[in-house]
């Protein structure tokens, strides 16, 4: 009898926690993940998060299936064929991380016409019938300058490390940083280099530009480049500026070492690979009949001085700090957009 009581209690708790009961409506729905690439730590973490969260959801009967498919060659035509195959396989919703924002539109349209819900995230698609969970890269850049403004009331010169030239994400983050500098005119971007989101490239680029720069009070980055910048600056006799980090494990580890040694302070910001799980819950909510705005914005994952240790402990060696989203998170994001 105690078991039954416990079950009843847990059901009651579950019902209380969820504002609307969702189990009945999507229990027979199948969701597929169409992913274009799995060749780096971020994507691997993304797939692991998907497996973990959706595995649980399938087990508890929220959805009937949540299968992940990755194309072998990271090519748009291949992914388009993959999406068309998913329509044939009878999935009710397809969650996409797209190889191209436009080249999948035909396949996405086919899916919509067949009554399949399409949710794209990270690599989003422009087809209007699909939902988009985009990252506000501009805000990610702007918030770095805002943080620095709080830390450095006197302002000063900043060094900007950009990503891979010609990529949309690089332009967006950089635009955000420049908007931030306009907002806080006490800062000035004294120099800017391309670090290609890689520590070794960033280190070389920063070492190259440093001799020509005045004193630097802060380094604004795009992620994957903070550790390299720190190495390059440590090799000179300059004071260590505030380097904004990008949630990579090596960056967090370096930050922790500095924090312990000389109470170095900074912050770290990037996109959590677990955004795939947010897309999953959004798809589930749409299937559940919720009214969801077509364009949603994913919150980015920010690490501050006080939760550094906790995040570092949860990050795999060579990986990226991650967070997995729950159904409540998705509902919050949806409500924020409405």
């Amino acid at each position: 009898m105690t078991i039954r009581k416990m079950l009843l209690a847990s059901v009651a708790v579950a019902c209380a926690a969820m504002p609307v009961s969702v189990f009945a409506d999507t229990a027979d729905k199948k969701i597929a993940l169409s992913n274009n690439y799995a060749g780096n730590s971020w994507r691997q973490a993304m797939l692991t998060s998907w497996e973990k969260v959706t595995g649980e959801a399938v087990k508890t009967g929220v959805v009937a299936a949540a299968d992940a498919f990755t194309t072998a060659e990271n090519q748009a035509t291949e992914q388009a064929a993959q999406i068309q195959n998913m329509i044939l396989q009878g999935y009710d919703a397809i969650v996409i991380n797209a190889a191209s924002p436009t080249a999948l539109n035909g396949a996405v349209k086919e899916a919509c016409d067949a009554g399949v819900t399409v949710v794209s995230f990270d690599g989003i698609v422009t087809e209007p019938c699909a939902w988009r969970i985009a990252v506000d890269f501009k805000e990610m850049g702007r918030s770095q300058v805002e943080y620095l403004a709080g830390k450095l009331p006197d302002g000063g010169n900043l060094l900007e490390i950009r990503g891979l030239a010609g990529v949309f994400v690089d332009d967006e983050i950089s635009a955000g940083i420049h908007a931030g500098v306009e907002e806080y005119p006490k800062f000035k971007i004294a120099g800017s280099v391309h670090g290609d989101w890689a520590q070794d490239v960033a280190q070389k680029a920063v070492a190259g530009i440093l001799p020509s720069l005045p004193a630097i009070v802060g380094v604004v980055t795009q992620g994957g480049d903070g550790y390299g910048a720190a190495q390059a600056i440590a090799a000179t006799d300059r004071d260590m500026p505030i380097i904004v980090m990008g949630n990579r494990e090596d960056e967090l580890k370096w930050w922790k070492e500095q924090k312990d040694a000389n109470s170095y302070e900074t912050m770290s910001v990037s996109i959590a690979p677990g955004v795939s799980t947010l897309a999953f819950w959004v798809a589930q909510q749409i299937l559940d009949g919720k009214d969801v705005s077509k364009d949603l914005v994913v919150p980015f994952l920010r690490i501050d001085q006080d939760n550094l240790e906790e995040n570092l402990a949860n990050t795999q060696a060579g990986g990226v700090a991650n967070v997995e989203y729950s159904q409540e998170d998705a509902i919050q994001v949806i409500e924020a957009a409405n």
Binding site: Q75, T77, A80, T102, A103, N105, G106, A107, E127
Partner: peptide
Amino acid sequence: ALVGLTTSADANIALRY
């Protein structure tokens, strides 16, 4: 034909071909 199917283009759309 490819653009007819995809509705829009990408400079890397057919490298696999």
